[in-house]
């Protein structure tokens, strides 16, 4: 993409990146409902999903407001196709086993928490307000996911092997979180969103500490997938949207 001149367009884009990531991850986590390894975790997973859905309503709600074309959070969630989605590739990865779900959550939370801390300093008060509220929820998400990664990484032989496999699979999807494009740069320049380069230090330190304590090994390959933020997704997202958007698409004149 070329240089972004229109700040409102950049802001709309940035808000969709946030809201789509929480939407897609919230949806993925909600797929666990009734299937978790133990009742206590079933309830905990639902809490995380509920937080993320709530954050989606706020981010996409603001995106619609900024865009000024009378699109609501629901219109944005249910009436856009894959190429309009701006979520990170990491969050659209399928749930896999509990280890994959948990590792995906941790790698995202470790970015999400400092990202929200930066957003809480936004010059745009609407952004800052949402970030403050979401920040409290996500601080808990990170505490939970980091702790469980440590416990299962340094648990039984099988749990260690499964967590390592999850890390190996998901690692190449972590790169794009910290690589700014023109949109990110424009928003950082305007003091609306934090500089993604700055998040890398925090993320690296946190992830290295937790994975070391979990006795897990970070993959050596530096290869990273990218494109989610620009609307280039994996095949998985289309199937998720086909499920998620079915009712509003099949009955466009209905209200629910």
């Amino acid at each position: 993409m070329g240089a972004v001149v229109d700040l409102d367009a950049a802001l709309f884009e940035g808000l969709c990146r946030l809201g789509d990531s929480t939407l897609v991850l919230g949806h993925r986590v909600s797929e666990w409902c009734g299937q978790a390894p133990v009742l206590e975790e079933d309830i905990a997973l639902a809490n995380v999903a509920l937080d993320l859905i709530g954050q989606t309503q706020m981010w996409l709600g603001l995106a619609g407001e900024v865009e000024g074309r009378e699109r609501t959070s629901d219109t944005l969630a249910y009436h856009r196709d894959v190429w309009d989605f701006r979520n990170l590739l990491l969050v659209e990865r399928p749930n896999g086993d509990f280890g994959h779900t948990l590792m995906r959550q941790f790698l995202f939370d470790a970015w999400h928490q400092p990202m929200l801390a930066g957003l809480a300093q936004s010059r745009d008060t609407r952004v800052a307000e949402i970030a403050v509220k979401a920040g409290k929820e996500v601080a808990y998400h990170l505490e939970r996911s980091a702790d469980l990664v440590i416990r299962l990484g340094d648990g039984s032989g099988e749990s260690h092997a499964r967590m390592q496999a999850a890390l190996d699979t998901l690692w190449p999807y972590t790169g794009e979180m910290m690589v700014p494009d023109a949109t990110d740069a424009a928003l950082a320049e305007a003091g609306i969103m934090p500089d993604l380069n700055g998040l890398r230090t925090t993320w690296d330190a946190l992830v290295q500490d937790v994975l070391a304590e979990a006795t897990l090994t970070i993959p050596e390959s530096g290869f990273m997938h990218k494109g989610g933020k620009q609307g280039q997704h994996s095949e998985h997202l289309g199937h998720m949207l086909a499920t998620m958007q079915f009712l509003p698409r099949a009955y466009p004149d209905a209200t629910w």
Partner: peptide, 12 residues
């Protein structure tokens, strides 16, 4: 599917 999680957390 949850057995390894329950056991892993106990082991830790």
């Amino acid at each position: 599917d949850g057995a390894w999680v329950r056991d892993g957390l106990m082991a830790h």
